[in-house]
Amino acid sequence: MAGQSPRRQWWAGRQMGIAAIPPMPQRRVGGMNVRGDAIFRSVLAVFAAIILVIIGLMLVMVVTQSSEAWRKFGLGFITGTEWAPPFSKFGALPYIYGTVITSVIALMLAAPIGVGCAVFIIEFAPAWLRSPVSFMVELLAAVPSVVFGLWGIFVFAPWMRNGPDKFLVSHFSFIPLFKGPTFGLGVLSAGIILAIIIVPYITSVTREVMLLTPTNQREGMLALGATRWEVIRYVILPFARSGIVGGSILALGRALGETMAVTMIIGNRAQIKPSLFAQGATMSSVIANEFAEAATTLYTSSLIAIALLLLVVALIMNVLGRLLVWSVARSR
């Protein structure tokens, strides 16, 4: 590529329409435009590089500033169950547990329902309903999580306590998962709120992936006399499968990092208890609650170490999810 003008490179790289473009008339006029293009390209590249700088800097800062905790505790930081700031003991396991359990609850509830809703919008909703429903779903994906939290505190938690929780405790308390007492604030409530938050996300990703299903395959199925359900079952779902999984993983990534609503409803107690009604705490909620008050550098460093864990998990989820969604887009 060296020796070619930037413009040439561009044309070579473009995949649009015309195969060969004659050289520009001004190309050799004092090299003015060539230089202009080069400058322009560099300026844009600098701005693009900012994105790399952000993520690089983020990793560097979070890694270096959490190094004190890693040096002190090593991997014991992840497996340690005790989080006792006054004694400078920091083990993140209760928070990891809280994050995992709430996210799993959220995903188990949100994924089937979200996919179902996407199918409904695409296949079954009458035309007049399609647009409002998808607008609604998009709108709710944008509602700030602190609003979900507010609703959670004043509407959802009391309802949970007097409704579903009460029912479960009175009928199923022999299962450790449903052992009381219940106050409406706990792992289960937080998981359900998370599910409500990520459902619009799953729905919109799934809907988009499903829309990519080749029309001729669907129509072929219908022409063969298949019912709508059979088209979904044998054409759309298989086609969109990896996209749906990818979308769910992206949503899981979101659930893992979701902070405000969870903090407001989980009960903020670092513990590992089998009961779903027990209070818990997540990695993001402990940061939100304790970061501003961390009294020693080791404390701050430990919280940043949690942020690092969160970052790494989120990165893995995102890479995985995006690769899967891409694979659907490519397969077309």
């Binding site: 979070v62 990092g257 993001s284 969160l310 989120a314 995102n318």
Partner: peptide, 9 residues
């Protein structure tokens, strides 16, 4: 990826 970084981080 940056889109998926948790806001608290």
């Amino acid at each position: 990826i940056l889109l998926g970084v948790p806001s608290i981080v």
